[in-house]
Design a protein around this nucleic acid. Sequence first.
DNA 1: GTGCGATAGTTGTGTTGTCAACGACCTTCC
DNA 2: GGAAGGTCGTTGACAACACAACTATCGCAC
Lengths: 169, 169
Amino acid sequence: MTTDVATHAPAKAADPRLGSWRTFLHAHARLTRRLDDELRASHGLSLAEYDALLQLAQAPGRRLRMSVLADRVLLSRSGITRLVDRLVADGMVERSTCTTDARGAEASLTRAGLDRLRAASTTHLEGVRRYFLDTIAADDRQAMERGLCQVMDGLDDAAPASSQDRADA
Amino acid sequence: MTTDVATHAPAKAADPRLGSWRTFLHAHARLTRRLDDELRASHGLSLAEYDALLQLAQAPGRRLRMSVLADRVLLSRSGITRLVDRLVADGMVERSTCTTDARGAEASLTRAGLDRLRAASTTHLEGVRRYFLDTIAADDRQAMERGLCQVMDGLDDAAPASSQDRADA
DNA sequence: GTGCGATAGTTGTGTTGTCAACGACCTTCC
DNA sequence: GGAAGGTCGTTGACAACACAACTATCGCAC
Protein backbone atom coordinates (compact mmCIF):
# COMPACT_ATOMS: atom_id res chain seq x y z
CA MET A 1 0.00 0.00 0.00
CA THR A 2 2.76 2.41 0.86
CA THR A 3 4.55 3.23 -2.26
CA ASP A 4 7.76 5.08 -2.01
CA VAL A 5 8.48 5.60 1.61
CA ALA A 6 11.36 3.57 2.89
CA THR A 7 9.87 0.89 5.06
CA HIS A 8 11.87 -1.15 7.52
CA ALA A 9 10.26 -4.15 5.94
CA PRO A 10 11.24 -5.34 2.44
CA ALA A 11 10.37 -1.92 1.03
CA LYS A 12 8.38 -1.67 -2.14
CA ALA A 13 10.22 -0.77 -5.27
CA ALA A 14 9.50 2.86 -6.01
CA ASP A 15 8.20 3.86 -9.40
CA PRO A 16 11.39 4.18 -11.45
CA ARG A 17 9.91 7.09 -13.36
CA LEU A 18 9.92 9.17 -10.24
CA GLY A 19 13.41 10.37 -10.99
CA SER A 20 11.98 12.38 -13.88
CA TRP A 21 9.66 14.16 -11.52
CA ARG A 22 12.47 15.04 -9.16
CA THR A 23 14.64 16.22 -12.01
CA PHE A 24 11.81 18.43 -13.18
CA LEU A 25 11.45 20.03 -9.76
CA HIS A 26 15.15 20.55 -9.20
CA ALA A 27 15.81 21.93 -12.65
CA HIS A 28 12.99 24.42 -12.28
CA ALA A 29 14.06 25.54 -8.84
CA ARG A 30 17.66 26.08 -9.77
CA LEU A 31 16.93 27.63 -13.11
CA THR A 32 14.48 30.22 -11.88
CA ARG A 33 16.69 31.01 -8.94
CA ARG A 34 19.63 31.67 -11.19
CA LEU A 35 17.68 33.78 -13.65
CA ASP A 36 16.02 35.70 -10.85
CA ASP A 37 19.37 36.41 -9.22
CA GLU A 38 20.88 37.61 -12.47
CA LEU A 39 17.93 39.83 -13.26
CA ARG A 40 17.94 41.38 -9.81
CA ALA A 41 21.66 41.92 -9.83
CA SER A 42 21.79 43.60 -13.21
CA HIS A 43 18.47 45.44 -13.34
CA GLY A 44 16.79 45.30 -9.96
CA LEU A 45 13.78 43.41 -11.25
CA SER A 46 12.30 40.16 -10.03
CA LEU A 47 11.22 37.53 -12.51
CA ALA A 48 7.57 38.23 -11.73
CA GLU A 49 8.03 41.95 -12.27
CA TYR A 50 9.82 41.34 -15.53
CA ASP A 51 7.07 39.05 -16.67
CA ALA A 52 4.39 41.59 -15.84
CA LEU A 53 6.19 44.32 -17.76
CA LEU A 54 6.60 41.96 -20.69
CA GLN A 55 2.93 41.04 -20.78
CA LEU A 56 1.99 44.69 -20.73
CA ALA A 57 4.45 45.52 -23.49
CA GLN A 58 3.03 42.82 -25.69
CA ALA A 59 -0.58 43.78 -25.10
CA PRO A 60 -2.38 46.08 -27.53
CA GLY A 61 -2.08 49.64 -26.26
CA ARG A 62 0.42 48.40 -23.70
CA ARG A 63 -2.39 48.09 -21.19
CA LEU A 64 -4.21 45.21 -19.58
CA ARG A 65 -7.01 44.58 -17.17
CA MET A 66 -5.75 43.53 -13.76
CA SER A 67 -7.39 40.15 -13.89
CA VAL A 68 -6.01 39.37 -17.34
CA LEU A 69 -2.57 40.33 -16.19
CA ALA A 70 -2.97 38.14 -13.15
CA ASP A 71 -3.74 35.13 -15.31
CA ARG A 72 -0.78 35.69 -17.59
CA VAL A 73 1.70 36.20 -14.79
CA LEU A 74 0.33 33.24 -12.83
CA LEU A 75 -0.61 35.28 -9.81
CA SER A 76 -3.74 35.58 -7.72
CA ARG A 77 -5.87 38.69 -7.94
CA SER A 78 -4.48 40.07 -4.74
CA GLY A 79 -0.98 39.14 -5.82
CA ILE A 80 -1.27 41.19 -8.98
CA THR A 81 -2.64 44.15 -7.04
CA ARG A 82 0.49 44.20 -4.95
CA LEU A 83 2.86 43.60 -7.80
CA VAL A 84 1.32 46.47 -9.73
CA ASP A 85 1.53 48.61 -6.59
CA ARG A 86 5.27 48.15 -6.62
CA LEU A 87 5.59 48.85 -10.32
CA VAL A 88 3.51 52.02 -9.95
CA ALA A 89 5.65 53.14 -7.03
CA ASP A 90 8.67 52.73 -9.26
CA GLY A 91 7.08 54.67 -12.09
CA MET A 92 7.05 51.75 -14.50
CA VAL A 93 3.29 51.34 -14.64
CA GLU A 94 0.24 53.56 -14.31
CA ARG A 95 -3.12 52.52 -12.99
CA SER A 96 -6.36 53.79 -14.48
CA THR A 97 -9.98 52.85 -14.15
CA CYS A 98 -11.49 51.03 -17.05
CA THR A 99 -13.75 53.20 -19.19
CA THR A 100 -16.20 50.47 -20.09
CA ASP A 101 -16.47 48.87 -16.67
CA ALA A 102 -16.17 51.08 -13.64
CA ARG A 103 -15.34 48.13 -11.44
CA GLY A 104 -12.26 47.35 -13.41
CA ALA A 105 -8.78 48.77 -13.33
CA GLU A 106 -6.17 48.75 -16.02
CA ALA A 107 -2.44 48.78 -15.73
CA SER A 108 -0.55 50.51 -18.48
CA LEU A 109 3.15 50.57 -19.18
CA THR A 110 4.91 53.90 -18.91
CA ARG A 111 7.79 55.03 -21.06
CA ALA A 112 10.13 54.39 -18.16
CA GLY A 113 8.72 50.92 -17.74
CA LEU A 114 9.27 50.11 -21.36
CA ASP A 115 12.84 51.35 -21.24
CA ARG A 116 13.50 49.34 -18.14
CA LEU A 117 12.04 46.24 -19.73
CA ARG A 118 14.08 46.68 -22.88
CA ALA A 119 17.26 46.94 -20.90
CA ALA A 120 16.42 43.95 -18.78
CA SER A 121 15.28 41.77 -21.64
CA THR A 122 18.75 41.62 -23.08
CA THR A 123 20.14 40.14 -19.89
CA HIS A 124 17.21 37.89 -19.24
CA LEU A 125 16.88 36.42 -22.70
CA GLU A 126 20.57 35.77 -22.81
CA GLY A 127 20.20 33.78 -19.63
CA VAL A 128 17.23 31.82 -20.87
CA ARG A 129 19.07 30.92 -24.01
CA ARG A 130 22.29 30.06 -22.30
CA TYR A 131 20.92 27.95 -19.49
CA PHE A 132 17.86 26.51 -21.14
CA LEU A 133 17.32 26.83 -24.87
CA ASP A 134 20.87 26.34 -26.06
CA THR A 135 21.59 23.63 -23.52
CA ILE A 136 18.81 21.27 -24.51
CA ALA A 137 18.92 19.46 -27.82
CA ALA A 138 16.23 20.68 -30.19
CA ASP A 139 14.31 17.42 -30.34
CA ASP A 140 14.51 16.94 -26.59
CA ARG A 141 13.16 20.42 -26.14
CA GLN A 142 10.29 19.74 -28.47
CA ALA A 143 9.52 16.47 -26.74
CA MET A 144 9.48 18.28 -23.44
CA GLU A 145 7.15 20.96 -24.72
CA ARG A 146 4.84 18.34 -26.14
CA GLY A 147 4.76 16.46 -22.86
CA LEU A 148 4.19 19.53 -20.75
CA CYS A 149 1.39 20.76 -22.96
CA GLN A 150 -0.33 17.46 -22.38
CA VAL A 151 0.21 17.88 -18.67
CA MET A 152 -1.57 21.22 -18.80
CA ASP A 153 -4.40 19.78 -20.83
CA GLY A 154 -4.75 17.07 -18.24
CA LEU A 155 -4.92 19.63 -15.48
CA ASP A 156 -7.66 21.47 -17.33
CA ASP A 157 -9.69 18.33 -17.72
CA ALA A 158 -9.52 17.34 -14.09
CA ALA A 159 -10.64 20.77 -12.96
CA PRO A 160 -10.78 20.85 -9.16
CA ALA A 161 -14.51 21.37 -8.70
CA SER A 162 -14.68 25.16 -8.79
CA SER A 163 -13.13 27.78 -6.64
CA GLN A 164 -14.34 30.73 -8.75
CA ASP A 165 -10.73 31.56 -9.29
CA ARG A 166 -7.99 30.49 -11.61
CA ALA A 167 -9.94 27.37 -12.41
CA ASP A 168 -9.46 27.32 -16.15
CA ALA A 169 -8.21 29.28 -19.15
CA MET B 1 19.24 44.72 -29.91
CA THR B 2 16.02 44.43 -28.02
CA THR B 3 14.80 40.97 -28.54
CA ASP B 4 11.35 40.14 -27.49
CA VAL B 5 9.76 43.26 -26.24
CA ALA B 6 7.08 44.58 -28.51
CA THR B 7 8.54 47.66 -30.09
CA HIS B 8 6.45 50.25 -31.89
CA ALA B 9 8.96 49.94 -34.69
CA PRO B 10 9.08 46.86 -36.96
CA ALA B 11 9.59 44.69 -33.91
CA LYS B 12 12.20 42.00 -33.98
CA ALA B 13 11.03 38.48 -34.39
CA ALA B 14 11.23 36.83 -30.99
CA ASP B 15 13.11 33.60 -30.59
CA PRO B 16 10.53 30.99 -31.59
CA ARG B 17 11.88 28.60 -29.00
CA LEU B 18 10.71 30.91 -26.26
CA GLY B 19 7.37 29.18 -26.20
CA SER B 20 9.08 26.14 -24.71
CA TRP B 21 10.35 28.23 -21.86
CA ARG B 22 6.94 29.64 -21.12
CA THR B 23 5.38 26.22 -21.29
CA PHE B 24 7.94 24.98 -18.82
CA LEU B 25 7.13 27.75 -16.37
CA HIS B 26 3.39 27.42 -16.67
CA ALA B 27 3.36 23.66 -16.42
CA HIS B 28 5.49 23.78 -13.29
CA ALA B 29 3.39 26.46 -11.64
CA ARG B 30 0.10 24.77 -12.29
CA LEU B 31 1.34 21.30 -11.50
CA THR B 32 2.88 22.13 -8.15
CA ARG B 33 -0.12 24.22 -7.21
CA ARG B 34 -2.46 21.36 -7.93
CA LEU B 35 -0.40 18.80 -6.08
CA ASP B 36 0.11 21.14 -3.15
CA ASP B 37 -3.61 21.83 -2.92
CA GLU B 38 -4.46 18.16 -3.02
CA LEU B 39 -1.88 17.28 -0.40
CA ARG B 40 -3.05 20.03 1.92
CA ALA B 41 -6.67 19.15 1.48
CA SER B 42 -6.26 15.45 2.15
CA HIS B 43 -3.43 15.39 4.68
CA GLY B 44 -2.66 18.90 5.83
CA LEU B 45 0.87 18.84 4.49
CA SER B 46 2.58 21.24 2.14
CA LEU B 47 4.72 19.93 -0.67
CA ALA B 48 7.85 21.12 1.10
CA GLU B 49 6.86 19.39 4.32
CA TYR B 50 6.10 16.20 2.48
CA ASP B 51 9.42 16.35 0.74
CA ALA B 52 11.27 16.86 4.00
CA LEU B 53 9.54 13.88 5.60
CA LEU B 54 10.34 11.79 2.54
CA GLN B 55 14.00 12.68 2.58
CA LEU B 56 14.22 11.78 6.24
CA ALA B 57 12.41 8.48 5.69
CA GLN B 58 14.83 7.53 2.95
CA ALA B 59 17.93 8.46 4.91
CA PRO B 60 19.82 5.82 6.88
CA GLY B 61 18.52 5.84 10.44
CA ARG B 62 15.74 8.14 9.30
CA ARG B 63 17.82 11.12 10.38
CA LEU B 64 19.68 13.83 8.57
CA ARG B 65 21.85 16.82 9.31
CA MET B 66 19.99 20.08 8.89
CA SER B 67 22.22 21.30 6.11
CA VAL B 68 21.93 18.07 4.15
CA LEU B 69 18.19 18.20 4.47
CA ALA B 70 18.22 21.80 3.30
CA ASP B 71 20.08 20.84 0.15
CA ARG B 72 17.74 18.00 -0.67
CA VAL B 73 14.59 19.97 -0.10
CA LEU B 74 15.93 22.96 -2.01
CA LEU B 75 15.65 25.34 0.92
CA SER B 76 18.01 27.82 2.51
CA ARG B 77 19.48 27.06 5.90
CA SER B 78 17.08 29.36 7.64
CA GLY B 79 14.24 27.94 5.62
CA ILE B 80 14.96 24.44 6.82
CA THR B 81 15.23 25.57 10.43
CA ARG B 82 11.72 26.91 10.27
CA LEU B 83 10.31 24.03 8.34
CA VAL B 84 11.72 21.60 10.90
CA ASP B 85 10.33 23.82 13.66
CA ARG B 86 6.88 23.26 12.26
CA LEU B 87 7.37 19.53 11.89
CA VAL B 88 8.66 19.28 15.45
CA ALA B 89 5.68 21.25 16.71
CA ASP B 90 3.46 18.75 14.98
CA GLY B 91 5.31 15.81 16.47
CA MET B 92 6.50 14.45 13.15
CA VAL B 93 10.18 15.16 13.67
CA GLU B 94 12.58 15.35 16.59
CA ARG B 95 15.61 17.54 16.81
CA SER B 96 18.84 16.37 18.44
CA THR B 97 22.35 17.64 18.57
CA CYS B 98 24.86 15.77 16.49
CA THR B 99 27.12 13.51 18.54
CA THR B 100 30.19 13.99 16.39
CA ASP B 101 29.88 17.73 15.85
CA ALA B 102 28.43 19.83 18.63
CA ARG B 103 27.62 22.63 16.20
CA GLY B 104 25.38 20.42 14.19
CA ALA B 105 21.78 19.43 14.65
CA GLU B 106 20.00 16.44 13.30
CA ALA B 107 16.38 16.00 12.43
CA SER B 108 14.95 12.53 12.89
CA LEU B 109 11.61 11.18 11.82
CA THR B 110 9.23 10.08 14.55
CA ARG B 111 6.85 7.20 14.31
CA ALA B 112 4.00 9.67 13.88
CA GLY B 113 5.89 11.39 11.10
CA LEU B 114 6.43 8.14 9.28
CA ASP B 115 2.77 7.22 9.56
CA ARG B 116 1.75 10.62 8.32
CA LEU B 117 4.13 10.35 5.39
CA ARG B 118 2.88 6.90 4.48
CA ALA B 119 -0.69 8.08 4.42
CA ALA B 120 0.16 11.15 2.39
CA SER B 121 2.37 9.32 -0.08
CA THR B 122 -0.56 7.39 -1.46
CA THR B 123 -2.37 10.58 -2.38
CA HIS B 124 0.68 12.40 -3.56
CA LEU B 125 2.12 9.69 -5.74
CA GLU B 126 -1.23 9.10 -7.31
CA GLY B 127 -1.30 12.77 -8.25
CA VAL B 128 2.21 12.73 -9.64
CA ARG B 129 1.39 9.73 -11.75
CA ARG B 130 -1.92 10.99 -12.93
CA TYR B 131 -0.91 14.50 -13.83
CA PHE B 132 2.68 13.96 -14.82
CA LEU B 133 4.06 10.48 -15.32
CA ASP B 134 1.07 8.87 -17.00
CA THR B 135 0.26 11.93 -19.05
CA ILE B 136 3.57 12.24 -20.81
CA ALA B 137 4.64 9.67 -23.38
CA ALA B 138 7.56 7.58 -22.16
CA ASP B 139 10.03 8.79 -24.76
CA ASP B 140 8.99 12.39 -24.31
CA ARG B 141 9.51 12.02 -20.61
CA GLN B 142 12.95 10.57 -21.12
CA ALA B 143 13.88 13.33 -23.54
CA MET B 144 12.76 15.88 -21.00
CA GLU B 145 14.78 14.30 -18.25
CA ARG B 146 17.82 14.19 -20.47
CA GLY B 147 17.42 17.84 -21.37
CA LEU B 148 16.86 19.00 -17.82
CA CYS B 149 19.86 17.07 -16.54
CA GLN B 150 21.96 18.94 -19.05
CA VAL B 151 20.46 22.18 -17.85
CA MET B 152 21.54 21.37 -14.32
CA ASP B 153 25.02 20.44 -15.47
CA GLY B 154 25.20 23.75 -17.28
CA LEU B 155 24.19 25.59 -14.13
CA ASP B 156 26.92 23.82 -12.20
CA ASP B 157 29.54 24.80 -14.73
CA ALA B 158 28.65 28.44 -14.80
CA ALA B 159 28.79 28.66 -11.03
CA PRO B 160 27.97 32.21 -9.97
CA ALA B 161 31.32 33.13 -8.49
CA SER B 162 30.80 31.93 -4.93
CA SER B 163 28.30 32.85 -2.34
CA GLN B 164 29.44 30.18 0.12
CA ASP B 165 26.00 28.75 -0.10
CA ARG B 166 24.08 26.45 -2.34
CA ALA B 167 26.65 27.08 -5.05
CA ASP B 168 27.06 23.50 -6.15
CA ALA B 169 25.95 20.04 -5.25
C1' DG C 1 46.97 25.20 24.24
C1' DT C 2 45.77 29.45 22.14
C1' DG C 3 44.24 32.32 18.64
C1' DC C 4 41.82 32.71 14.14
C1' DG C 5 39.30 31.76 10.11
C1' DA C 6 35.68 28.60 8.47
C1' DT C 7 31.31 26.24 9.30
C1' DA C 8 26.45 24.93 11.54
C1' DG C 9 22.39 26.40 12.89
C1' DT C 10 19.25 30.02 14.74
C1' DT C 11 17.12 34.46 14.91
C1' DG C 12 15.62 39.39 13.39
C1' DT C 13 13.83 41.60 9.53
C1' DG C 14 11.97 42.29 5.00
C1' DT C 15 9.78 40.53 0.78
C1' DT C 16 6.35 38.27 -1.77
C1' DG C 17 2.79 35.52 -2.04
C1' DT C 18 -2.06 33.53 -0.44
C1' DC C 19 -6.92 33.53 1.33
C1' DA C 20 -11.06 35.62 3.26
C1' DA C 21 -13.76 39.58 3.65
C1' DC C 22 -15.18 43.81 1.76
C1' DG C 23 -17.14 47.74 -1.17
C1' DA C 24 -18.21 49.09 -5.61
C1' DC C 25 -20.22 48.03 -9.67
C1' DC C 26 -22.56 45.20 -13.36
C1' DT C 27 -26.49 42.23 -14.95
C1' DT C 28 -30.73 40.14 -15.08
C1' DC C 29 -35.22 39.15 -14.13
C1' DC C 30 -39.49 40.40 -12.17
C1' DG D 1 -36.71 50.44 -11.73
C1' DG D 2 -35.06 47.94 -8.11
C1' DA D 3 -33.60 43.90 -5.54
C1' DA D 4 -30.49 39.61 -6.00
C1' DG D 5 -26.56 37.76 -7.16
C1' DG D 6 -22.27 37.72 -9.63
C1' DT D 7 -17.68 39.91 -10.79
C1' DC D 8 -13.66 43.20 -10.11
C1' DG D 9 -10.09 44.88 -7.50
C1' DT D 10 -8.34 46.09 -2.88
C1' DT D 11 -7.29 45.33 1.89
C1' DG D 12 -6.08 42.92 6.47
C1' DA D 13 -4.14 39.07 8.40
C1' DC D 14 -1.03 35.67 7.85
C1' DA D 15 2.37 31.98 5.84
C1' DA D 16 6.67 30.80 4.00
C1' DC D 17 10.62 31.96 2.25
C1' DA D 18 15.45 34.64 1.79
C1' DC D 19 19.34 37.34 3.51
C1' DA D 20 22.27 39.18 7.03
C1' DA D 21 23.87 39.13 11.56
C1' DC D 22 24.80 36.40 15.48
C1' DT D 23 26.48 32.54 18.66
C1' DA D 24 28.76 28.37 19.25
C1' DT D 25 31.87 25.18 17.77
C1' DC D 26 35.42 23.09 14.87
C1' DG D 27 40.02 22.63 12.86
C1' DC D 28 44.46 24.07 12.35
C1' DA D 29 48.69 26.71 12.55
C1' DC D 30 51.98 27.93 15.54
